[in-house]
């Protein structure tokens, strides 16, 4: 894997570690619980786009998010 990708992965990992220190209280999650903030809401559409892209591009991925994080499940 090229250096740029390794660097990006390290930066992302550090960012996640820092982010993990932050906790949004349940009372502050009104906006996060809106449908447009829920990655899982787009899953059927993502399946179709992933289907097309995997058949027409050499790459794959970027469509899978587990949702959550908003505490509204």
């Amino acid at each position: 894997m090229p250096r740029a990708a390794i660097a990006a992965a390290i930066v992302a990992a550090i960012a996640c570690t820092q982010a993990a220190c932050v906790t949004v209280r349940p009372s502050e999650r009104q906006v996060l619980s809106r449908p447009e903030m829920d990655p899982a809401r787009d899953a059927p559409e993502e399946v179709w786009h992933s289907h097309v892209e995997s058949a027409r591009e050499g790459a794959f991925g970027g469509h899978g998010a587990a949702g959550g994080g908003c505490g509204c499940g």
């Binding site: 993990a20 932050v22 502050e28």
Partner: peptide, 15 residues
């Protein structure tokens, strides 16, 4: 996936 802020959600995936 993590709620960074009351208005910001972010995620990282490795496939």
């Amino acid at each position: 996936t993590h709620a960074l802020h009351p208005t910001v959600l972010a995620g990282l995936n490795v496939e």
